[in-house]
């Protein structure tokens, strides 16, 4: 990024801003409730899981509603980013075919737009904290860092799926299956201590989303913080980001030919 002139900075900033603006506008262009849908979806999920797990399966988790909402919001942000990523390049075929600009920005715009949705959803968590009477604590200062790291993770996955989908349209189906399996294999609706010890290394230590969900819960609900989890989450995020970016850079030259 060294060597960029003031004009280039201005240009990239404008490009990101307008592309994100376009994403946000198009997402809800003809729906009446607009952004509310982004909240309604995780909330209805939370409601269903709450009834099923709290009253039918009788799971023993304190503040289970809050537990679910934190987990589902964090997960939904990840899942939405990847799903939106599949269309980031594909749906902009007419732009890519005609003009040369940094195509990476299309994916970045999608990630920023999903991040903004998460921020707004996150605000509703405050309401629950009020209801449960849980005060904020010093570890809240790590939340911005968690958001940045998860954005990098989301971006890595999105770069990967955005470029692969161009050549392999079936990718969207794989992603749906992958997300579905990944969701149940990640401690979102159940707590980490319910997982048998020998499985924990795969389901928690080797799974960036499990780490992120656990970290948010530690901070928001329990007022604790696990630095090892943070270190692992950062490591995975950076590795996945670099891999996704590498794949994207390798394939981007073929986009205009294939679209």
């Amino acid at each position: 990024m060294i060597g960029l002139t003031a004009r280039q900075w201005e240009y990239y900033r404008d490009l990101i801003f307008e592309l994100t603006n376009k994403e946000l506008k198009l997402k809800y262009k003809s729906s009446m409730l607009g952004f509310v849908w982004s909240l309604l979806l995780p909330f209805t999920h939370a409601l269903v899981y709450f009834v099923a797990f709290k009253y039918i399966l009788r799971i023993k988790v304190e503040n289970y509603a809050l537990f679910l909402i934190v987990g589902l919001f964090v997960w939904q942000w990840f899942a939405n980013s990847i799903l939106a990523g599949t269309g980031a390049v594909l749906s902009n075929g007419n732009l890519i075919k005609k003009t040369k600009f940094p195509y990476e920005f299309l994916v970045v715009a999608v990630i920023i737009s999903e991040w903004l949705h998460f921020i707004l959803a996150f605000v509703t968590i405050f309401i629950f904290l009020g209801i449960y009477g849980i005060p904020p604590n010093v570890y809240w200062m790590f939340i911005p860092l968690l958001m940045v790291m998860q954005s990098i993770l989301n971006l890595g996955f999105a770069f990967f799926v955005a470029s692969i989908t161009v050549f392999f349209r079936d990718m969207v189906w794989f992603i749906n299956i992958f997300l579905n399996m990944f969701f149940y294999l990640t401690p979102i609706i159940y707590p980490i201590d319910m997982i048998p010890d020998r499985l924990r290394i795969f389901i928690v230590d080797g799974n960036p989303m499990a780490l992120f969900v656990a970290l948010y819960r530690q901070i928001i609900i329990y007022g604790t913080f696990d630095y090892l989890y943070l270190a692992l989450a950062i490591l995975y995020s950076v590795v996945i980001f670099l891999f996704g970016w590498w794949v994207f850079s390798k394939l981007k030259w073929k986009f205009a030919e294939v679209l």
Binding site: E10, Y11, D14, L15, F17, E18, L95, T99, F101
Partner: peptide
């Protein structure tokens, strides 16, 4: 305009 390389200004 942005895709053609102009800044918003």
């Amino acid at each position: 305009g942005l895709l053609l390389g102009m800044t918003k200004k």
